[in-house]
C-alpha cells in the first residue's frame, strides 16, 4: 500500500508542477497587465504540437525541438500583445474586450490546430523513457517521465528566480508588477516590460504543455478548458500575486486528483478535484476575514 502511495505522490507532484507552471504563467501575466488571458492554455497546446512537429515530423533532436517550440510560442505572445492587447488597451472598456477576445482566440486556435494536424490525439515520442519500463526502487515503480519533469521544473524555477533577482530586467518586471506608476517614474519602459511578460507567460505555458504531452498526448485537451481551469485554479491558490505559491497550488491539484483516482475512480477525478478546490477557496476566504 505504501508503495502505491509513494508512486501516486510522485506522479501527482510531477503533473501538479506542470499545472503549477501554467498557473505561474497566469500569475506573471496578471501581475503586470492586471488581465486574464483566456487563451492562456492555448500556448500549452501550441507548444506541444510545435514540438511534435519539429521532433517527429522534421526529425530534429528533442531538446532543440522543445526550445524552438517555446521560442515560437513566445513570438506568438508578442503578436498577441501587438495585435490584440495594444489596440484594446487604448480603448475604454478594453479590459473586458480583451477577456472576450482571448476566449474567441482560444476557440480559433483549437480549430487552427485541427486544420493543421487533425483532431486525433498523437502519442508523444518516448523522450522521457518508456512508460512500460518505470524505475523500480524496492517495491516502488516510478515513471521516468515524473523524474524528468521534476528535473526540468527545478532547473527552470532556479533560472526564473535568478532572472527575477539578478538581472535589471527581472527586477524591473517585479517593480512594474508592484507599482506601475513608480516604475514609470524610475524611467522603466513599462511597455517593454509588458511585452516581456506576454512572452514569458506564453513561453512558460508552452514548456508546461510539452512536458504534459506524455500524459495527455499531443491533443486538443492541452488547449482545452479542463487543464486551463486547473492552471487558473493554481494561480488563484497563489492569490494571483505569488508565482511560487501558484506552483505549489498546482502540486496540490496534482496530488488531489491522483488520490481521488486511487481511492475513488478516474471517472470522478475532475469532479472531486474541482469540488475540493472550490471548498478550499471558500474556506480560505472565510479564514482571512
Amino acid at each position: 500500500m505504501l508503495s502505491i502511495w509513494i508512486q501516486n505522490a510522485v506522479s501527482g507532484v510531477a503533473i501538479g508542477l506542470l499545472y503549477g507552471l501554467i498557473g505561474l504563467g497566469v500569475v506573471l501575466f496578471f501581475q503586470t497587465t492586471n488581465l486574464l488571458n483566456f487563451a492562456h492554455i492555448s500556448s500549452a497546446m501550441l507548444g506541444a504540437y510545435l514540438c511534435y512537429m519539429f521532433n517527429v515530423t522534421l526529425h530534429l533532436p528533442f531538446v532543440l525541438a522543445m526550445v524552438l517550440a517555446i521560442i515560437l510560442v513566445a513570438c506568438y505572445g508578442l503578436l498577441l500583445k501587438r495585435f490584440v492587447y495594444e489596440p484594446l488597451a487604448k480603448r475604454e472598456g478594453g479590459r473586458l474586450e480583451f477577456i472576450i477576445a482571448t476566449m474567441m482566440l482560444s476557440v480559433f486556435l483549437l480549430n487552427a490546430v485541427i486544420v493543421l494536424w487533425g483532431g486525433v490525439p498523437k502519442p508523444f515520442p518516448n523522450v522521457f523513457g518508456d512508460p512500460a519500463k518505470p524505475l523500480i526502487i524496492g517495491s516502488v515503480a516510478i515513471q521516468t517521465h515524473s523524474l524528468w519533469v521534476l528535473g526540468y521544473v527545478t532547473v527552470f524555477v532556479i533560472a526564473l528566480q535568478s532572472f527575477f533577482t539578478k538581472t535589471m530586467t527581472g527586477k524591473s518586471l517585479r517593480a512594474v508588477a508592484q507599482n506601475q506608476g513608480a516604475a514609470r517614474l524610475m524611467g522603466i519602459d513599462v511597455e517593454k516590460m509588458l511585452t516581456i511578460s506576454f512572452m514569458l507567460s506564453t513561453g512558460i505555458t508552452a514548456l508546461a504543455g510539452i512536458l504534459l504531452a506524455p500524459a495527455y498526448f499531443v491533443s486538443l485537451d492541452l488547449g482545452g478548458g479542463i487543464i486551463g481551469i486547473k492552471g487558473f485554479a493554481a494561480a488563484v491558490v497563489g492569490r494571483m500575486n505569488k508565482p511560487y505559491v501558484a506552483l505549489l497550488g498546482g502540486v496540490l491539484i496534482g496530488l488531489a486528483e491522483n488520490f481521488v483516482v486511487l481511492y475513488a475512480s478516474s471517472v470522478y477525478r475532475d469532479v472531486i478535484t474541482f469540488a475540493f478546490l472550490i471548498l478550499f477557496l471558500v474556506v480560505r476566504k472565510k479564514a482571512e476575514v
Binding site: 527586477k171 517585479r174 517593480a175 508592484q178 507599482n179 506608476g181 513608480a182 516604475a183 517614474l185
Partner: peptide
C-alpha cells in the same frame, strides 16, 4: 506617499 516597491 513615497511609492516604495513593497516586495523589492
Amino acid at each position: 506617499g513615497r511609492q516604495i516597491f513593497p516586495e523589492l
